[in-house]
């Protein structure tokens, strides 16, 4: 495998891993549930996407044949991640999880005004 190819694969892997780490950091660090929802749905999904691109290049170059089936995982995750975020958020809304004070337009507090 050529050196340039190794550098490209390493870049994708490290970028993906960093995004996954940032998503998990957001899950740990932010204050209320709805803010935590943002980290995993975006950063982690893109992180897995980056690592999968790295894996596709690695196996395609190693076997000298295009190996695309990892792409299915990325496709599936990009379809399901918003759906699971939506339904977890819906469950949290239903239970009226405590929000940060400064959140505007909290739905269950303004039912009276409109």
């Amino acid at each position: 495998m050529s050196f340039l190819l190794e550098v490209i694969i390493s870049l994708f892997l490290l970028l993906g891993a960093l995004f996954a780490l940032v998503g998990s950091l957001g899950l740990t660090r932010l204050q209320d549930f709805f803010m935590r929802l943002h980290g995993p749905t975006k950063a982690t999904t893109l992180g897995v996407g980056g690592m999968i691109i790295g894996s596709i290049i690695y196996f395609s170059a190693g076997d000298n044949a295009l190996s695309m089936h990892e792409l299915l995982i990325a496709l599936f995750l990009f379809i399901t991640a918003p759906v699971s975020a939506h339904i977890v958020g819906k469950a949290a809304l239903h239970r009226q999880i405590a929000c940060e004070e400064r959140t505007r337009n909290i739905p269950w507090q303004q039912n009276g005004d409109d």
């Binding site: 940032v22 950091l25 209320d32 803010m35 975006k42 400064r102």
Partner: peptide
């Protein structure tokens, strides 16, 4: 999606007291 991730990454790493969450 790529731009959004960069932005959210910056927001997550930045000071969390300055975030202004809102429902729309």
């Amino acid at each position: 999606i790529v731009v959004a991730n960069a932005q959210v990454a910056v927001l997550i790493m930045g000071p969390r007291q300055k975030l202004q969450p809102a429902f729309m």
